[in-house]
Design a protein around this nucleic acid. Structure first.
Length: 455
RNA sequence: GCGGCGUUGGUGAAGUGGUUAACACGCUGGUUUGUGGCACCAGUAUGCAUGAGUUCGAUCCUCAUACGCCGCCCCA
């Protein structure tokens, strides 16, 4: 049997409906913040990622899907979204648009050649946003608040923002040096991995799980202490805007992010979810003021965020969060003989065009099997087509919940269905997903609740 | 890239070196020749991830490969 490639997934059925719902919330929230959808290629020149992300880490050298196309060009399946967006910004000269900054969001598949494990696939779907062309701390705060609000609109509770600042290039270099100086005399007390990290990527030692309880780590120099005045003021401004926007956060000096291109603000957002394990980070991002110039564009200050949709879907399911997913149909059309089947074909079309969700029988089941099928599909109404009725211009329609059957004129079928189906529409149709326990909208906000502003 | 464990019908799964691979759900048909969801009856894997080997004989033992889960590395 042909199997799907390692680390890839088929998403279908109920899970697919959850995905579409999550994506619809993302779209709606992005729209409110005035971020425009952008689609960039799934593969790009290998060079884009090498220059953008940096050669230093393992990431680019061995963890991407590289291939040579028939023209001999070196291509790479995108491992993340930011580089492609920056390339597009530069190539399309968006820096010339009068409406700076450029605010965009994407949602697409990324590819990483890694050994799959919990919460980590080779093909994954991420959404993210980027603000290109602003160094204003307000844009940092806005990106963070937007990310938080998407999670909240989805109904996730206990969202925690961890924020840190790496400072500008000077601050970062100073800090890196300070870290090496600090750890070097104690190198023997670190785990094996950290000993190699010391030269390669000293910042990551702070993230180490093995040495997490090591006193050495707890007393290590903090990025914040090495910020120069300008960087420090900038970080304070970001935090102030977050306060004003009523986004709660925690300064966590161990957040460093893996990539070279980050500076100033870096952050990760985690959710406390039962069953999520230690790997509970939903997404993260940061400021990257030099990436655009690195790939040949003008120096452009940017900030962005990215988050895996698969993990969000998993979190929603684990938390058993109610979602407005349609899992039933309006009407199931049943028939027995060929004449009735033909009428079913005609009627299904008519009703669908009139706006109803209609299904019928395609596998030759008997009437008994068709009733079972109607139940499996959660049909609200069933119709058993009958030649005699049809000759009398009549049709039997049965409420599949109350089991009451009525014989009505074919001419009023659409009107009848419309009336019946919309009768109970006032019921608890919308669940409020603002994520605020104190919310008083009682679900009548139509999914459009802004009550989290009153927290 | 390294390591541990796993893979049995549509599904959940039991099982054993030896002839018919349990049980349950589901599905199909019948009892009921066009109004079901109950009940009863019947049918439903020449097949136990794939390939090779050991053996008189392999789903079971060995090895390899693929995929999965979980760690490590790395984490965008």
């Amino acid at each position: 049997m042909i199997q799907k490639p390692k680390g890839c997934n088929d998403i279908y059925g109920r899970e697919a409906k959850i995905w579409k719902y999550v994506e619809s919330v993302i779209d709606a929230t992005m729209e409110k913040y005035n971020y425009n959808y952008i689609r960039t290629p799934i593969f790009e020149s290998t060079e884009l990622f090498h220059r953008g992300i940096g050669e230093s880490t393992d990431i680019v050298t061995k963890e991407t899907y590289d291939f040579t196309d028939r023209g001999g060009r070196n291509m790479t399946l995108r491992p993340e979204g930011t580089a492609g967006v920056c390339r597009s910004y530069v190539e399309n000269k968006m820096y010339g648009d009068p409406t700076q900054p450029v605010k965009v969001y994407y949602n697409g598949t990324m590819y990483r050649y890694e050994r799959p494990q919990s919460g980590r696939d080779r093909e994954l779907t991420q959404f993210g946003m980027e603000v290109l062309g602003s160094d204003d701390p307000l844009s940092d705060a806005e990106v963070i608040s937007l990310a938080v609000n998407i999670y909240k609109m989805l109904g996730l509770k206990e969202i925690k923002v961890n924020i840190n600042s790496l400072g500008d290039k000077d601050s970062r270099d100073m800090y890196r040096k300070a870290l090496i100086d600090y750890f070097k005399p104690h190198i023997g007390e670190l785990c094996e991995d950290c000993q190699t990290r010391l030269e390669k990527n000293p910042l990551r030692i702070l993230d180490c799980k093995v040495d997490a309880d090591n006193e050495l780590l707890k007393n290590a120099p903090k990025t914040i202490d090495y910020l120069n005045d300008e960087s420090r003021e900038r970080f304070e401004a970001v935090k102030e805007y977050l306060d004003i926007m009523q986004v709660s956060y925690e300064v966590n000096p161990n957040i460093v992010r893996g990539l070279d291109y980050y500076n100033h603000t870096v952050f990760e957002i985690e959710a406390k979810v039962e069953g999520f394990g230690s790997n509970n980070v939903l997404g993260g991002g940061g400021r990257y003021n030099h990436l655009c110039s690195e790939i040949g564009g003008p120096e452009t200050p940017c900030i962005g965020f990215a988050s895996g949709i698969g993990r969000i879907v998993l979190a929603l399911e684990l938390e058993k969060i109610k979602m407005p997913i349609v899992e039933d149909i309006d009407l199931f059309l049943m028939y027995v003989n060929e004449e009735e089947k033909k009428y079913a074909a005609y009627l299904a079309q008519e009703l669908r065009m009139a706006g109803f969700i209609v299904d019928t029988e395609y596998t030759g089941r008997g009437l008994k099997g068709q009733f079972k099928q109607a139940d499996r599909l959660n049909a609200k109404y069933v119709v058993v087509l009958n030649s005699e009725d049809l000759n009398n211009n009549e049709i039997r329609i049965k409420n599949n919940k109350t089991k009451e059957e009525e014989i009505i004129s074919l001419d009023v079928l659409i009107y009848y269905l419309d009336e019946q189906l919309n009768a109970g529409v006032e019921d608890d149709y919308h669940e409020c997903h603002c994520g605020n326990d104190e919310c008083s909208c009682d679900g009548d906000c139509g999914g459009d609740c802004h009550c989290h502003h009153h927290e």
